[in-house]
Write a protein that binds this DNA or RNA. Structure first.
Lengths: 140, 140
DNA sequence: ATAATATATGCATTATAGTGCATATATGAA
DNA sequence: TTCATATATGCACTATAATGCATATATTAT
């Protein structure tokens, strides 16, 4: 292999790594990644939205960034898009361990909302989503 | 504790985590962190500079960012400032394991230069630094 | 005291990234 | 087909971050 091609390959590969760290360098994305790591389940966008009480468009955009980094994968099921940890990516699996070693206290609220949301599923099926952040729906 | 104070504390703590990931989201910093993780030694700024063939001011600045994130610590020794992994930080230790699990091939060149540079030490003492990137000094 | 070396940082420039709003697309239900 | 729901994205705006240059600070040697 040509020297410049060799150097170029190294650059690309190291970029893949930094892209993963960058993906977790945002609060919203770290919270999403934590929930997916902890629950070890596929979650729909609207469920994640409720768990972290963020707007639909932001959750969607952050999910794209996590997906583009290779940390999560998507699975389209009808009108829903389910996201889960991409275990095919070694670094993703490593980072799951890393975030699970963080103090759970700081993610407690998110986890409570996530679990509350998952309980609403009907025989494993997602039942409703209203594209509104959690507060307007659950705080009655 | 007041509710807003509680939320504020959570925000600050999660920010500490994202700051660590952000610190590793830059190519230069990831390379520095890798070298320090692998060598398990204190390295002077000029030695790191030679290892990654980067300018003095950039290396120095990136070291500040890693230090500020709590991933590395500094130890002033005369005119030199030695940097090493901050093992007091649990997340830093976790991330050391994470980066050591990355493919070594992509850090091989850096490691070779780092080792070559350390060999120039005299009885463990740093012997010379010229504030010039490696190429001008070693490629004779 | 002066010079040389090691490290850090202010500033200007450029590039990248996050947010909110509006809107587009896709799927299923009536 | 029409409507409602779920998800994605273009755009404008703002904020943050990386880089290079020059320079400041600190320490050691002469």
């Amino acid at each position: 292999m040509h020297y410049s091609a060799y150097m170029n390959n190294i650059k690309i590969q190291i970029n893949k790594y930094t892209t993963c760290f960058k993906a977790l360098s945002d609060k919203t994305r770290l919270r999403i990644f934590y929930i997916l790591s902890k629950l070890k389940k596929e979650l729909a966008v609207c469920e994640i939205m409720d768990a972290i009480a963020e707007s639909q468009y932001n959750v969607s955009r952050h999910l794209q960034i996590l997906k583009h980094a290779g940390l999560i994968k998507e699975n389209k099921k009808g009108r829903w898009v389910l996201y889960s940890i991409n275990e095919d990516n070694d670094l993703a699996s490593q980072l799951v361990q890393t975030v699970l070693a963080l103090k759970p206290a700081y993610f407690k609220d998110d986890m409570q909302r996530a679990k509350a949301r998952l309980k609403k599923r009907c025989k494993g099926k997602i039942v409703f989503c209203l594209n509104q952040p959690l507060k307007e729906k659950f705080d009655e």
